[in-house]
Design a protein around this nucleic acid. Structure first.
Length: 420
RNA sequence: GCGAUCGUGGCGAAGUGGUUAACGCAUUGGAUUGUGGCUCCAACAUUCGUGGGUUCGAUUCCCAUCGGUCGCCCCA
């Protein structure tokens, strides 16, 4: 027996309906913010992910699905969406027509990780990227758009963590300061922190094991390394969020796993009483230099992405999905072979007129066909047998009221139009 | 990459080193051959993730492997 690849999911039936429901709600909201969809390939040349996420990042060092194609090109299944969108933005010179370009994407991402709660090897992200403006107002608006999407889905058990990590130079300065600070006491910290010292010292601040350690608590703050300009910028972002009544808290230890972020970074975290608690459902930030580092013009970008599977989990857990059952409008019950042929034809006429009509393909007993109508939750049942064929009429039964009438076929559409 | 735990029919779920693997739901057939959704009766795992080993004998014990779940790391 074949099994699906480890860490992957089949969506079918109800779960597929939920998946597509999310896509439609989300895209509808984000379009009102002026975003248009960009659909990029699922794989890219490996280099673009290495360049953007950072050679030392976890994603690049251990999580990418990378392979050589038959032309010996190094190809990678995208582990995140931003790099491909930036590449597309540049390659298609989207900046030529407007100063501000707002894009969204929705699709599968791939990371080779150990599966666990809310974590899969193939998962789906929705994300946005806005290029062209370094503006606190835009930063805030991007965050608000994520907030509104969750709100329109009914999700309110989230908290927004936000921080600023400054521009590249102040961040690099801070990294040096931190390394100097931690290096002398590194043997008093956990083994993970020892690894992080050279690779990603910012993450030491976020250590869960040593979080109460005074060495970490009294570590130099990033705010000390920020330029006044960066501080002011962040203040403006917060002001805009305040004005819009967005609840947030500034977490000075919030750093993100990807190298490309600058200034504003944020995450939405799930607050719940089960194992989902504390999971990041949405993460993003500003990246001032990525476009330029790709060899493009000096255009800043900001964006976020969130995981659809995690959203589905939350919504399931909180019962937030509306009733998405599809009920058949009409099930045709045919009692003999000739009626079967006729019902096939009639069903198709109904379908072409916009009704969901179904028939039974094998059984001839009435009971079985009634069961089919139950299963499909049919609103109406049309019974066709010798009598009806002889009189050129149809027997229609309303499954709710049990009311049953006989009419001529040409009256059917008008009848349904009135009743459905 | 590290650690824990689990894997019985479409689903849920009991169970035991020994000739027929409970039960519930679902499904199918019948009671009820032009009117169903209730009820009643019946059928439905030569097999207990896969492979190997121990044993007279394993679904039950051991090993391996694949997968699920849950932690760590990291993240969506």
């Amino acid at each position: 027996m074949y099994q699906k690849v480890k860490g992957t999911l089949d969506f079918y039936d109800e779960s597929a309906i939920k998946y597509r429901y999310l896509e439609s709600v989300i895209s509808k909201v984000i379009k009102n913010y002026g975003y248009t969809e960009v659909i990029t390939p699922i794989f890219e040349n490996t280099e673009i992910f290495v360049r953007t996420s950072g050679e030392e990042s976890d994603i690049v060092t251990k999580e990418m699905y990378t392979f050589l194609d038959k032309g010996k090109r190094s190809i990678t299944l995208r582990p995140e969406g931003t790099a491909g969108v930036v590449r597309s933005f540049l390659e298609n010179k989207m900046y030529a027509n407007t100063t501000l370009t707002k894009l969204y994407y929705f699709g599968p991402m791939f990371r080779y990780e150990r599966p666990q709660t809310g974590r899969y090897r193939q998962f789906t992200q929705f994300g946005v990227e806005a290029f062209g403006a370094s503006s606190p107002l835009l930063d805030a608006d991007v965050i608000i758009s994520a907030y509104q999407i969750f709100k329109s889905l009914g999700i309110d058990n989230l908290k927004l963590k936000i921080n600023t990590i400054g521009d590249f130079t102040s961040r690099n300065n801070y990294v040096d300061v931190l390394q100097d600070y931690f290096r002398k006491d590194i043997d008093k910290l956990c083994s993970d922190c020892n690894n992080r010292l050279e690779k990603n010292p910012l993450r030491i601040l976020d250590c869960k094991i040593d979080s109460d350690n005074p060495i970490i608590k009294s570590a130099p703050k990033i705010s000390d390394s920020l330029t006044q300009e960066a501080k002011d910028y962040f203040k403006e972002v917060l002001k805009a969020l305040d004005y819009n009544n967005i609840n947030y808290f500034v977490d000075e230890n919030l750093v993100r796993g990807l190298d490309y972020y600058t200034d504003t970074v944020f995450e939405f975290i799930i607050e719940s009483d089960d194992n989902l608690n504390g999971l990041a459902i949405c993460g993003g930030g500003k990246y001032s230099d990525m476009v330029k580092s790709f060899g493009g013009p000096d255009i800043p970008g900001i964006g976020y992405a969130f995981g659809i599977e995690r959203v589905i989990s939350i919504m399931d857990q909180k019962g937030l999905f509306p009733n998405l059952d599809k009920a058949a409008d009409v099930v045709l019950i045919a009692l003999d072979e000739e009626s079967k042929l006729y019902s096939l034809n009639l069903a198709n006429k109904l379908r072409m007129n916009g009704y969901y009509a179904d028939i039974d393909y094998f059984n001839t007993t009435m009971k079985q066909q009634f069961k089919l109508s139950d299963r499909l939750n049919a609103k109406f049942i049309i019974i066709i047998g010798e009598e009806e064929l002889a009189n050129n009429s149809l027997t229609i039964k309303n499954t709710k009221t049990k009311e049953q009438i006989t009419i001529k076929e040409y009256m059917l559409l008008e009848y349904l139009k009135e009743k459905i």
